[in-house]
Structures are given as structure tokens and as C-alpha cells.
């Protein structure tokens, strides 16, 4: 099994690494690049703790191969705050006590940010379905959903001031 050389952009920084073909992007981030903010809860795409964005799309980094991100852009929890300024979602998660143990928190934040980039005015149901792939066992989700809705409300106020808002709504999906 020979290593593959990859050049990619992570949180805006051009990054090079080598990895084996069977390594996931999550393995690469954690074990090769020392970026342990992205967590592994299952390794099978069922828990969302390893959420990152790939070219702006929310994905589970455990289901992306390290080899295939060559030439693409990855964003992780480590890139969310701007220096010492927290992203509004990070601040609201703290204020609403939306984390207990905190292991799922990076994944939830990355997923919620991806929602608010597409829809700054989500309903509670839309938030819940968007975040259904992120498991939390501590909070019962209540305070997480409130934190996301409250962030959206604040960000709408800011957005109203600055410019028109984008809305590409993801409809709530329901089973039978």
C-alpha cells in the first residue's frame, strides 16, 4: 500500500500531506495533521461528530477518503472562530448551555453553520431535520436547537443591516 501525496486547502491554509488509500479524511486530520477538534464517534457516518465541510458541503469526514480531497477545500471546527472572536454560534452555544460533555459540539457547530449559510430563517423543524445526523446524548437537543434559532435571529438582524439575505431553503423532510 503506497502513500498518496495530497495538496489541499484546510481552513484557508494550503496543506500537504501523504496518506494511505484506506485512510479517511478524519484519520488524516486527527492523526497526520494534529487537528483533533474534529471527533470520531462512530466512523460509519451515523453520529456526525466528525462533520466538516468539503467545498462548502457538509459531510462526515469519516466517509471521505484522505486521497480524494486533493485540490479541494476543507473547513473544520478549528477554522470557525476568527482569531479570538468566536463565531456567533459558538458564543450562543456557551450562553445557552447547549453542551454538556462537549464531544458532539464541534460537529453540531459545523453542521449548524452550514445550515445558517443556506437559511438564516429556519423553523424549529428545519433545524431539527438538518441536525438529525448529529447525535447528542447529553442535552436532549433542546438547548442546542434554541441556541441555533437564537443565533439565526441575531444574524438576521445583522444581515438586515448589511445586505439582502440569501435563502435556499431545505424543506423539512418527513417520513410517512
Amino acid at each position: 500500500m503506497s502513500n498518496i501525496h495530497v495538496t489541499t486547502t484546510i481552513n484557508g491554509d494550503e496543506t500537504e500531506y501523504v496518506c494511505r488509500p484506506d485512510e479517511s479524511l478524519l484519520d488524516v486530520l486527527r492523526d497526520r495533521l494534529g487537528m483533533s477538534g474534529t471527533k470520531e464517534g462512530c466512523g460509519t457516518g451515523d453520529c456526525g461528530a466528525c462533520s466538516v465541510t468539503l467545498d462548502g458541503r457538509l459531510v462526515c469526514s469519516c466517509l471521505v477518503m484522505g486521497a480524494e480531497v486533493d485540490g479541494h477545500k476543507v473547513e473544520t471546527i478549528e477554522g470557525m472562530a476568527d482569531g479570538e472572536d468566536l463565531h456567533p454560534l459558538q458564543q450562543k452555544f456557551l450562553e445557552h448551555a447547549a453542551l454538556q460533555c462537549g464531544i458532539c459540539t464541534p460537529g453540531f457547530l459545523v453542521a449548524a453553520q452550514s445550515l445558517l449559510e443556506r437559511n438564516l430563517d429556519p423553523t424549529e423543524t428545519e433545524v431539527r431535520y438538518w441536525l438529525a445526523g448529529n447525535l447528542c446524548r447529553c442535552t436532549g437537543y433542546d438547548k442546542i436547537v434554541r441556541a441555533v434559532l437564537d443565533t439565526a435571529k441575531d444574524m438576521r438582524k445583522v444581515a438586515k443591516k448589511s445586505s439582502a439575505k440569501k435563502t435556499a431553503k431545505k424543506g423539512a423532510r418527513h417520513a410517512a
Binding site: 486527527r30 483533533s36 474534529t38 471546527i77 478549528e78 468566536l86 456557551l94 462537549g102 459540539t105
Partner: peptide, 17 residues
Amino acid sequence: IRPDGIDKVTGRARFGA
């Protein structure tokens, strides 16, 4: 806000793995 909060929302907190 909890004392360990910022580390947990920025990915700096160190868990078992």
C-alpha cells in the same frame, strides 16, 4: 458560561483520543 466552554466550542478541548 462554564470555565471549559471556549475550549469545547473551538475544538481545543482534549478528550480521551
